[in-house]
Write a protein that binds this DNA or RNA. Structure first.
Lengths: 180, 180
DNA sequence: CTCAATCGTTCCGTTTACGGAACGAACCAT
DNA sequence: ATGGTTCGTTCCGTAAACGGAACGATTGAG
């Protein structure tokens, strides 16, 4: 038993049975063996990415629906240990001219988190959903409450802090142009 | 030489090098062999789910950051004005291969908003900051409460609704691949 | 220069995920 | 009953994903 064995088996079986499809039929339409699908649903196999794509495709669901517990918290990534800001990387989009990173950010109250300048052209976009965030260029920070959105150029020193006693929660979208 | 080579190799290498970690070091901290990680980055292997979890965990990113859906087919901008859902466009990023739209979304309770399929390759990413949202594929919607994040392929019918008496507030990031 | 350390790739034996086939069980028609 | 069909599981040979070790290339120290 793998400690990390997410229970994709029962989730898969539930998805399949919700559609009234038999195991044999799904295996056929996914182009995989019945033995593979059976073992996958029973949790006795450690599937290959190719197998997962085949099954997800046949079910018409994104791979994330198969692999992730809906609403389960993703892995916590503490970027700056012991600092005011912790962030979790939710999604990464690699584009030819830029990389987008979507993060969930938690800012503890009472501390001002300084961030060094990023590369030229990097912009940060924050949408606050709890607390009051004070963030942006170090010499001219912006304020945002729940539901509000602020953005700034990140190629100069910038800060994150809160206003009031509560921590702030927000999503952070970072756009980084590709380096030459 | 997989017929269906998802491009997780280059994405993985990029993520690793962005952190300044060597292949050997990442393999060690992930508890996998160097040969496995090398082959994975070179795209010559078809990784196991267990391997993917090990690597994603060691990098501190969710598995979705590694296995984003491959497709990059045509696009068509369909916006969904509806009674239950109102949205405010915050930012638009035009990239050569994709357009990103960042919106703030408000979903009223008691109504289920149906959305027709978007073009293939369009993905939607929602971060909830108030209320409980039930959204995603019409036949397998996902649940998300405050602070939680869900995403799905938008090329099949999908819905937005709330759970409970309160309206839901969220940010919505739509990624639309550009016409090929 | 030599030597040691570390880089990423390749080689290779072991482990295991794969699909085809066989299996018993359940069901339906005759 | 009886034969035919489909169900999900198990058996088994093959293909390949795995980790350890060896490789050449590169780097840094003395």
């Amino acid at each position: 038993m793998n400690g990390r064995d997410t229970d994709i088996g029962s989730r898969l079986r539930r998805l399949r049975e919700a559609r009234g499809i038999s195991l044999s039929a799904l295996a056929r339409s996914a182009g995989i063996g019945k033995a593979t699908l059976s073992g996958l649903e029973l949790g006795t196999r450690n599937p290959t990415l190719e197998t997962l794509y085949a099954v997800a495709g046949a079910l018409g669901v994104p791979l994330t629906a198969l692999v992730l517990e809906p609403g389960a918290p993703p892995t916590e990534a503490v970027r700056v240990p012991g600092a005011a800001v912790t962030a979790t990387l939710l999604e990464v989009f690699e584009e030819p001219t830029a990389t987008f990173e979507l993060l969930r950010m938690r800012v503890r109250p009472g501390i001002v988190q300084h961030s060094p300048p990023h590369a030229p052209g990097v912009t940060e976009h924050v949408t606050v959903y709890a607390g009051v965030l004070r963030a942006g260029p170090a010499d001219a920070p912006l304020l945002a409450g729940p539901g509000e959105h602020i953005s700034w150029q990140a190629d100069i020193p910038h800060i994150y802090s809160t206003v009031g006693p509560d921590e702030a929660l927000a999503t952070l979208l970072i756009r980084s142009p590709r380096q030459a």
